[in-house]
Design a protein around this nucleic acid. Sequence first.
DNA 1: CTTGAGCCTGTATCAACTACAGACCCTAGA
DNA 2: TCTAGGGTCTGTAGTTGATACAGGCTCAAG
Lengths: 124, 124
Amino acid sequence: MARATGCNLETIRYYEKIGIMPDPPRSVKGYRSYDDAHVKRLNFVMRSRDLGFSLEEVRGLLGLVDDQSRTCAEVQVIAEDHLTDVRAKIADLKRIERVLSDTVARCTGDAAPECAVIDALLEA
Amino acid sequence: MARATGCNLETIRYYEKIGIMPDPPRSVKGYRSYDDAHVKRLNFVMRSRDLGFSLEEVRGLLGLVDDQSRTCAEVQVIAEDHLTDVRAKIADLKRIERVLSDTVARCTGDAAPECAVIDALLEA
DNA sequence: CTTGAGCCTGTATCAACTACAGACCCTAGA
DNA sequence: TCTAGGGTCTGTAGTTGATACAGGCTCAAG
């Protein structure tokens, strides 16, 4: 399944341990054997993670997927909360980007000990 | 010093343990006593962290601050590397924001089990 | 004299993995 | 048949940047 999905082997076993993935059936010698349902579920997890959902959020989403009586509204709440987080992170990084690029732009980049970056970090 | 800087007490001691902050002199009873130089250094660390520098990067910057023969060029390299990281993170989050907001926009938000977000996560 | 606050050390916890160690097992080639 | 190499198994420790205790000492105010 690691090969099929591109997911790290250890990560799959980690997901199993924390209950994100179900315990798969085992061969006589104890080897895990996965089927299409497992692969599908892992892909769901990977796509969710790729969109920045935390494992707890993924757990919530999986619970809704498994539950036939789930509603679109329930999913929407999780997704919108996450979207809010993402937007806050972007705003924060943009602030950092602005400060940092402004400061670096004032660097001479030469062999002198005076440096705009150091000055900025030293001053309030 | 925690009050003076707004830094968490445990965090200051953590910085001391990992060598970011120097071991301060102690009173007879073992209480740490800090002076202006400590406060200044901690402020430097806090501002660096606020700009998203990792503690290892902060360590590097502090090394350069302490070193009289440091050059602007050396600092510039660290800052520009970090700026590249920050820009990459912004780009990544923007991609996520786009996908997520497009998908959430297709949510009906009603009590039906059909959900655009789940569909998007289930499909390749 | 007590009560509450502050400081001390040291260890455990968090997320989300990753990286081993040490033991099996299985297949292909000599 | 033997062996070399890869794969799998379990279980534990490490990563980053803190934060949260537990259990004990000290100190100032009332």
